[in-house]
Amino acid sequence: MFARNNFARVALVVLAAVCIPCIAQCSEHGEGVSAAATVVFSIGQFPITDSVIMSWAISLLIILAVKFSLRGEAQIIPPRGQAMIESLVGGLRDIVEPVVGRKAFGIVFPCLLGYFFFILLQNLGGLLPGVGSIGIYSGGEFKPFFRPANADLNATLALAVVAFFAWAYYCLRCAGVRGMYFEIFGNKADKSEISSFVYGALFFVFLGVGLIECISILCRIISLSFRLFGNTFGGENLLHNMYGFSSLLKNIPVVNYLSYLIPLPFYFLEFLVAIIQSFVFTLLLSVYIGLVCNHGDHEKEILKKEEYGYNS
């Protein structure tokens, strides 16, 4: 046991001794993915970047994959492809429905499904071979043709802006202008429990809280977009650096055969991050909608079911 622990420690030290200088060398050479997407060509005034190309390609793949999985219309006895889509849709529905509330669920779910599948597959697209590595050298600089869409702030910002407008639309549709005003600025104190003076004074407090809430709502665009961008961009950089690191190891005689395996664990990590981030974005949007539209109807129904022993 002691010998095994010592061997592990020595191996760790040797690995660190080899890795740290190599990673440092990678950093000194400035290798890594640029924060801005690379413009590949332009259509009129619209620049088409590598992330836009990737976004279009993955979008096309998603639509075709779903279309071919369903083989036309969905069937009551599902084929394999439909069963897979159904399991994802059903799983997301079970999670999202209690969050957004039954009232809003019907109209919100298509949008949430779109976000989940779009972000998930765009993230997973970043793990495909050739993404970030196929391109041309122009002016001594490498210009890739493909870059994960969510590793471009334009894409994540666009998703967040659309999410913001979707949030506003769904909240207005479910709660109405009055309901939204009450949710943000309304005096939520119980009049029967406090004096009229305090209740009146609380109007100003809630007005101030509402203003802060408005800033918070606007900041959601930044938080949603930067969270997704940061994770995807970080992952892309990690994979890129690990490839750079493995190429440096090729010069070392003993470990050169193992150098190709170095990025492999990080692919699994990025796979996990892709799923988690798509889920986080979708869940956060549903929470934002649920904060305004969900007033505990689901919980009330569960309580009612428990009370009457009814099970639908």
């Binding site: 620049p47 279009w56 949008c111 779109g114 779009f118 910002l157 666009a158 802006v161």
Partner: peptide
């Protein structure tokens, strides 16, 4: 421009 392209792309795909 890119924001618009990506927004339209997502809305269309969704």
């Amino acid at each position: 421009h890119l924001l618009l392209i990506q927004s339209l792309n997502f809305v269309l795909v969704a």
